[in-house]
Amino acid sequence: MTAEEPLLQATNLHTWFELRQWGFLRVGSVRAVDGVNFELGRGESVAFVGESGCGKSSLARTLLGLHKPTHGDVIFEGEHLSELKGEARRQYLARVGYVQQDPFGALPPFMDVRRLLSEPLIIHGVTDRDERERRIRKVLEEVRLTQVDEILPKFPHMLSGGQQQRVVIARALLLEPAMLIADEPVSMLDASVRVEILNLLRRIQQERELTLAFITHDLSTVRHYADRIFVMYAGRVVEQAPVERLLDNPQHPYTCALLAAIADVDADNALEERAVPDGEPPSLLHPPEGCRFHPRCPQAMAGLCDRQDPPLFEPEAGHYSACWLQDPERG
């Protein structure tokens, strides 16, 4: 992190979804994002890691302005997202690019590549056809789809998965964003292409000095592509640290469990069972009191973890963990 003003700041961000019956009776709220604070610096690559249902995708959508935060706010380049209206909001959308999980689904199947890449430009008022063509060709080169003339008239289903994802990335870059949000950008791709796409994202991020928020469930891919990691559980960030420190010296029991569950390829893996915490992530409709991980935590302390929500402790500089085990006052 740098000392200068952060590009994006999430302050006490909550995104709850109201559950209604018959369209109007309020039954409760699904607390998808439930009190998240962080700052993302310019040119930084961060990873949000967690299981499905931990709120990482809802967080991404909130940052993209697709969901309205229930409480708290996102401050981007000094402006409050919730106060942006009309043209200012559109300008914001242009400043944040979005790369989705399913590259085929992310491209309108009835538009050819030229058409679908023109769309964002048309929406953002680039009326000159030649200007659009020039910008489209430029980003396609940037994502290494070098046979531009071959690619432009193709429909998404004629492209391979890797090419589709490159087109998605190109589309995210068209409007010259300051930040890119990539939601599981490689989980639907073949192993052999994944690394290629991740390298591409990383290179573009560094060349353009973008802020890259990269959402994944797979800790093993994170090391080379992110500077910092946020581990999320049940709508909250439970641990955050620079990538090396988090992977080599995890603090939160949930992070430890995640890391223990991942196999580095080895034939011995087949010989023994892995330690996996019992149970499943809690319901976001009725999250448990206290620490949200305590029902599954092997180190849970009765009377503390099931009563009080742990704040973020800082066991080492720049490494935060929301666990009572890291409470310096506990000794």
Partner: peptide, 10 residues
């Protein structure tokens, strides 16, 4: 997803 993407680019 492509509709979500469309919303995300405005």
């Amino acid at each position: 997803p492509y509709i979500e993407a469309a919303r995300a680019y405005g």
